[in-house]
């Protein structure tokens, strides 16, 4: 029996140690590169401290009690006393968790409100607005003020708040740059907002964390923080050299594919903003036919249909999809 208990205690003693050492390794959440991610990290550290306290107390009591009152040869005659409870003890272990909850909820609420604003110390900087459109399975970034658009990478100036306005052309995604800020969903016909600041120039990984189908893995982008000067230079270069994004090209881009990096000297916001409630719907189920038994799909007036789609094969074709071909979407259908 004894060796079981030893093993038991040893096994669970390892866990808090692991948790402790965990904080010191180079995990991205604990290495924030901007005030937003830092405020979240500080909240996490504050909670970790309290939670470690809880873990230590419970583990210690657990180890002590199991060790002291285990059945041994010597105590086989011991008959435990009748004990219904103890009001004082029960009040204590109701009150202490409540106090811990209070200790945690106050900074949580403060941080929740702060995350919606430009971080402290940057209030005087004019935020850079970037519209983010998530599509299967790429990220499209539009700079309305600069009038340029990028795909799968976003350049931002350092030490300046960036206001990402998030939406989606179809499925639900979560926009996450762990080194700079938390995450937020990007949803079709909706706009959510995420503000962040990069303190240092550098390249940070951004990714989608919300599962959205076959191409979900690898739906990543690069956030490149540059000095204001480099950023201005980059904008100017794009204006001079990048190609123009046409509606046709854009529709092609929205198909479910992985794309590399692309750059354009205009934005798709000129003809559609997916965040609008009555925006054109660019969905086409035919492009998502893959394996398994194919069910019927439904034609919508505002669907995006494309008769040249490559994945559309004869046997996957259903009658109801013949009706409205040639309806390529675009602003002439946006009257709904």
């Amino acid at each position: 029996m004894l060796k079981y208990i030893k093993l038991f205690v040893a096994l669970f003693a390892v866990i808090p140690v692991l948790l402790l050492t965990g904080c010191e390794t180079n995990m991205v959440v604990f290495e924030p590169q901007g005030p937003v991610a830092r405020s979240i990290m500080e909240l996490i550290n504050w909670s970790l401290m309290w939670m470690l306290l809880v873990v230590v107390v419970v583990f210690a009591m657990f180890g002590f009690i199991v060790w002291k009152y285990r059945e041994r040869k010597e105590n086989m005659n011991y008959e435990p006393p009748e004990e219904h409870g103890n009001t004082l003890f029960e009040i204590i272990w109701t009150a202490i968790p409540i106090l811990i909850v209070i200790a945690l909820i106050i900074p949580t609420v403060k941080t929740l409100y702060a995350l919606e604003e430009v971080p402290e110390g940057y209030e005087n900087e004019e935020p850079l607005t970037v519209h983010v459109t998530a599509a299967d399975w790429k990220w499209i970034f539009s700079y309305p003020e600069q009038g340029i658009e990028t795909v799968n990478y976003v350049n931002i100036p350092e030490d300046r708040p960036v206001n990402f306005k998030l939406t989606s052309a179809g499925t639900m995604q979560s926009f996450w740059v762990p080194a700079l800020a938390g995450q937020k969903y990007a949803m079709a016909k909706m706009e959510t907002q995420l503000i962040l600041v990069a303190e240092n120039p550098g390249s940070y990984v951004g990714k989608n964390s919300n599962f959205n189908g076959r191409g979900y893995t690898g739906m990543e982008f690069e956030v490149l923080a540059q000095t204001q000067q480099d950023f201005n230079q980059w904008i100017a270069d794009v204006k001079n050299t990048a190609p123009v994004l046409t509606e046709e090209k854009y529709e092609e881009m929205l198909k479910p594919t992985h794309l590399g990096r692309l750059t354009f000297k205009n934005t798709h916001l000129a003809w559609v903003n997916h965040a609008d409630e009555d925006a054109q719907t660019y969905t086409n189920p035919e492009l998502y036919r893959y394996n398994g038994y194919q069910g019927k799909t439904f034609e919508e007036e505002d669907n995006y249909m494309n008769e040249n789609s490559e994945t559309e094969s004869g046997d996957h074709h259903h009658e109801e999809n013949h009706d409205d071909h040639g309806n390529h979407g675009g602003d002439d259908h946006g009257q709904h």
Binding site: I40, L43, L112, L115, S174, S209
Partner: peptide, 26 residues
């Protein structure tokens, strides 16, 4: 008891809305 305690305290950490922005979907 000990393993569920770990599940529980990490649950409290996840419950903190602002911190959850870094844990969510991970």
């Amino acid at each position: 008891i000990p393993t569920f305690t770990i599940g529980g305290v990490t649950g409290v950490m996840l419950a903190m809305g602002a911190a959850d922005f870094q844990y969510h979907n991970t």
